[in-house]
Nucleic acid binder design. Structure first.
Lengths: 214, 214
DNA sequence: GGATTAACGCGAACTTGCTCGCGTTAACCA
DNA sequence: TGGTTAACGCGAGCAAGTTCGCGTTAATCC
């Protein structure tokens, strides 16, 4: 019996594997820059990244998987603002989102992910869970505001954060125009006014809960 | 010279052509019902409609064209409410939108159209113009409200209507959950509060204009 | 360093989606 | 009613995109 060096069947995350991963995701991102999702093809990604076509299919199966992974990668380093007041937090986050989607490649990425989710159940699950986690996280901002007495106790944090994001995705996916600071400002102002008016109150009037809703 | 019966090169919109068109669009809509956009393929549409594959490609070139045409078809008969007050109009329209997207096939159709727009420039133009026209039309509701003095004079009608629609498309495309009456109610309440707070004021403070913005 | 084996490169084979040419059907008009 | 021809049905042919088998490279551990 050959004492296995590192449990045969295990993956090798380091070195070359990580390099190809980076090369491919970078290539996808750049490809989104010229031509958007329309011009995205396995062949072009292979050429741009210098990674062989067969390798791409082996690791990601299809483009859907790539764009999902890229989204998670790019969104990793986004911090929650904490200015001390909800309107301040909303403005800060809204402008952060606006700046993020100011880049056409990121807008194309969102298009790509939504398209992927529409066709591939696996991609759909990734997308859903990704945004759910993000809403839960950002919802803390609202929880703090409720604790400070800025909003009604029955305000649903996730609904508030959905409402903050919605105008951006409408702009990108439906109106199909660039995202600018004016949109960010409008979104923050609108959500703050709507939340104070009780538009995001839970139907059953349950009090706002913390992040862990397990 | 043969006196042309109906200008050679002309199309023949009646009879068989109209029938196949109806059969195909109906088949697309039904296909969206079982399996959504993922299961949509030219071959399946051909089988379900009983129209030959080559005919589909000749008339629509690709699936993108079909879903765009279907969207225009389905949305043709949507009326603007006129209850006498903006909050009333907003609630009515919001619930109409909610009812429209209560059907999973229509949600799948929107996914399909957005996916189509992401890949095909022609489909993108169709989508953009379609929603732009719709916003302009619905904006009349806001123009009336401004004239009644319910909203500031510098309110941008299209921005208000965008804000009303945004939560639905966020729910469908990003959150990927069904649309319900609670969402419709929330959207209407939110937009009304936000509009009164001046969230949709034009940056330059120009007064609200009519539908024709030339 | 040396042995083991994931991960990769390469090209051929395969599958799928799409197009083309031709004969047939049925709108449209006189 | 009959002539003209757009629109359709049909199957073969073409061009993508995708998979497979095998040899090579380079992580990983001893």
């Amino acid at each position: 019996m050959v004492t296995a060096h590192h449990a045969p069947g295990e993956t090798r995350p380091g070195g070359r594997t990580a390099r190809t991963r980076q090369a491919v995701l970078a290539a996808v991102f750049e490809e989104l820059g010229d031509g958007g999702y329309a011009a995205l093809s396995m062949e072009r990604i292979a050429q741009r990244s210098g990674i062989h076509l067969a390798t791409l299919y082996r690791r990601w199966r299809c483009i859907e998987g790539m764009v999902c992974e890229l989204l998670a990668d790019l969104s990793a380093d986004v911090l929650l603002p904490d200015t001390g007041s909800l309107p301040g937090d909303l403005r800060a986050l809204s402008h952060a989102i606006g700046a993020f989607y100011g880049d056409a490649r990121r807008r194309s990425l969102i298009e790509a992910v939504v398209s992927a989710a529409a066709r591939d159940p696996e991609a759909e699950a990734v997308l859903r869970e990704f945004f759910d986690a993000r809403l839960t996280l950002a919802g803390r901002m609202v929880v703090r505001a409720v604790e400070r007495g800025e909003l009604p106790a029955d305000t649903d944090p996730k609904e508030v954060m959905s409402a903050l994001g919605a105008p951006f995705y409408y702009r990108i996916l439906i109106a199909r125009r660039p995202v600018d600071a004016a949109l960010a400002e409008s979104a923050a102002t609108a959500v703050w006014a709507a939340a104070r008016a009780g538009a995001y109150a839970r139907p059953d009037g349950a009090p706002a809960k913390g992040a862990g809703e397990g």
